[in-house]
């Protein structure tokens, strides 16, 4: 059987280029696919689709509300539109259109949120997107997906287009290591266990999957067996997997390139509270705005690197042990 993980990680791949290629591949197999952009096709590399399928590409200009509305019009005609702009703009400027037509009206539109998390690192807090998952997750009927690397994107994008219903997915702007191998076969809505362990579980999404795996290695060298789960679908959340990990490992750490409020950490906290409470540590941006800077430096500064995950894991373990002593 092909391995799920690539060991060691493959050389970094530009996620934007991977997205452009994935769009072109999908455009070949799906004649009903339409790509719309609010003038960001050079940024998110959807220009690759434009070059290949010019009559299925629409630039609506710098007008995010029109972007979502026009995509809804295409969905009404039976097309499968993917609307493209920066992740934060879907969650802010165009949110009302997303709510009314996609969430409430269930228009079959896919939203590609580019430059997610801190990945638009040099454009600063106005462009960085740290609460998009919280916003999107709060909307009924909307599916929320965070592909971790190009392999995940290739596997998940066709599924998002096959399902009949609105989807928001977020994409990193920068180079990311290839985490997954040939054996990675994700299904929307189902978490993927990447590494087994019995002491605690690291649940990660997006570009934080790689540092979570590194943290698990580092914990292993300290004698701690960490299970690692990739939660590519934040909504609907695989609550069974969360409950099982709580049951079997007794402590959980969530890892996301997002605020600790309302994203993966929030979703897992809700699931634990409802199903099986267990100590939970959330690695993410601690309810603050970030700043301009080199991407890797920003991730380190705001507590999103492997050592931060290790530290959070140790805290979670201590809480688990305290709990066991009290019993």
């Amino acid at each position: 059987m092909d391995p799920v993980l690539k060991k060691p990680f493959g050389p970094p791949v530009n996620m934007r280029r991977a997205y452009g290629e994935a769009l072109v591949a999908l455009g070949q197999s799906r004649p009903d696919l339409v790509v719309l952009s609010a003038d960001v096709s050079n940024s998110d590399h959807s220009f690759m689709f434009e070059a290949r399928f010019p009559d299925r590409f629409i630039n609506v200009g710098i007008a995010e509300q029109a972007l979502v509305d026009v995509a809804v019009g295409f969905a009404k005609c039976g097309r499968v539109p993917i609307a493209n702009t920066f992740a934060f703009l879907f969650a802010t400027r165009a949110l009302e259109q997303v709510r009314t037509h996609l969430a409430y009206g269930r228009a079959n539109v896919k939203l590609a949120g580019a430059y997610a998390g801190l990945s638009d690192s040099f454009d600063g807090p106005t462009h960085q997107s740290i609460n998009d998952l919280a916003v999107m997750r709060s909307l009924p009927n909307l599916t929320v997906v965070v592909p971790a690397d190009p392999v995940a994107l290739d596997a998940l994008l066709p599924q998002m287009c096959d399902m009949d219903g609105p989807v928001f997915f977020r994409l990193c702007r920068n180079e990311v290591p290839v985490v997954f191998g040939e054996g990675y076969r994700p299904t929307l809505g189902r978490a993927v266990q990447l590494r087994d362990g019995r002491d605690l579980t690291l649940i990660a999404c997006g570009v934080m999957v790689a540092p979570a795996l590194e943290a698990a290695e580092s914990l292993a060298s300290q004698g701690v067996q960490a299970r690692v789960v990739e939660m590519h679908t934040l909504k609907p959340l695989d609550t069974d997997m969360v409950a099982r990990c709580a049951e079997e490992t007794g402590a959980i750490v969530t890892v996301e390139e997002h605020s600790i409020i309302g994203g993966l950490g929030g979703a897992v906290a809700e699931a634990l509270a409802a199903a099986r409470p267990a100590p939970l540590e959330r690695v993410g941006i601690r309810d603050q705005f970030t700043e301009s800077g080199p991407y890797a430096d920003l991730l380190r500064k705001y507590g999103l690197a492997a050592p931060d995950i290790v530290q959070a894991a140790q805290t979670a373990l201590r809480r688990k042990e305290n709990l066991q002593r009290q019993r």
């Binding site: 339409v34 629409i58 509300q65 509305d69 026009v70 295409f74 009404k76 539109p81 009314t100």
Partner: peptide
């Protein structure tokens, strides 16, 4: 809420 449908008309006509 107002103002959200003219754009859908544009998309529909374009499609």
């Amino acid at each position: 809420s107002l103002g959200q449908i003219p754009g859908v008309g544009v998309g529909r006509a374009l499609a």
